[in-house]
Design a protein around this nucleic acid. Structure first.
Lengths: 200, 200
DNA sequence: CAAGATTGAGGACTCAATCTTT
DNA sequence: AAAGATTGAGTCCTCAATCTTG
């Protein structure tokens, strides 16, 4: 039901020089002729506006691709990926929300769908009946692996391969720092609510 | 209709060291214990997942703030800001869509709303009756200026101030490069459709 | 036919309210 | 009272179809 990657004509341009790029930065941000120019140094404006714009474009295309090939959304795959790495392939919904930067509300509804498709199961936490543990099924795990391959390939080609190692490192460090310091941040690598008595 | 910034308890943590951050990078990305670990070097995974997560958080909070104080969405303000810097405060809808990384469809609907609120006006392009020029009104310009002040303050505090100059520059350069090379990229700093005969 | 704009349908996401358990 | 989960209502955004003009 999705996909069709020809948004428009898709003509490629000759690769611009770094010098042109700096010019482009300020042109896009355009705060040289603006009214209160000095408020926003061009690189700062470009960092913000570029951030918003790129995230929209990247997300949109990744979404269409993964949906087309695996009937999953990026967020679904993000959730499943986190479950796949978690001990016992299990995590509480609240922790998933925090780890993904999504509302608990959204997580709950996504889990509804994944559950319907038998990709995950829900289990009330044995030690705290308020919490719900989500566990990846075998089928869910398989789907995760194959879908991740598709996504990773896309992300590399459209994003990571365009970055120098230096840039990738800077980016990863900076992103993690900002996220970790987020006001709502609940600390620590929260594991599943948990039990220890086997077979939840 | 909007706003309420107390998502949860909002406790602050002690600032983590850079070393901890690297650990956090890999923990969040978590591709050390993953099944096909080597496919995604931790910094690469962190760059991608962090990018998605941060953009969601940043956007959500900025959205709530600007909506509460100025009854505008981030995209509305983005459009108005671009109009404010454009010659004659005018741009075609198609160009706005390209500049923002939004679908033309979305732009059209946002313009509907801005038009209703008398913040912009629509004018059929005199030289090409297919195109629609959008022009910022006086009231629109005033609103843009004040709202930008709010947004800029937020963006600085939550984003830019957390970055070193070095990081900001790297980020701006990298974002611009990726966006500029986007497959759909239509080239050039497209101005309004235009006329030259005054008073469109 | 292609490009610009608009509209209908639908997905992703959020907040606010509610219910349950601690 | 507070935390976890769920649901209703509403926003933001996209695609596909359609209409108009070049």
């Amino acid at each position: 039901m999705a996909a069709n990657n020809n948004r428009t004509t898709r003509r490629r341009r000759p690769a611009p020089s770094e010098a042109d790029l700096i010019a482009a930065v300020t042109a896009r941000a355009g705060y040289m002729m603006g009214d209160q120019a000095d408020q926003w140094p061009p690189t700062q404006a470009a960092a913000w506006e570029g951030f918003l714009e790129l995230s929209r474009r990247l997300r949109r295309d990744a979404e269409a691709l993964v949906e087309e090939r695996h009937q999953l959304s990026i967020s679904m795959l993000g959730i499943m990926g986190r479950l796949a790495r978690a001990p016992k392939h299990t995590l509480r919904q609240t922790d998933l929300a925090d780890a993904m930067g999504l509302s608990l509300s959204r997580i709950s509804r996504i889990i509804d769908i994944l559950e319907q498709h038998q990709l995950v199961t829900r289990h009330t936490c044995p030690t705290d009946a308020r919490a719900t543990n989500v566990k990846l099924t075998r089928a869910g795990h398989r789907r995760t692996t194959t879908a991740q391959t598709t996504l990773h390939a896309y992300v590399r080609q459209a994003f990571l391969d365009q970055l120098t190692d230096q840039e990738t490192t800077t980016l990863a460090t900076l992103l993690t720092r900002l996220i970790t310091r987020w006001p709502t941040g609940t600390e620590g690598t929260a594991a599943a609510c948990d039990d220890l008595r086997d077979r939840p």
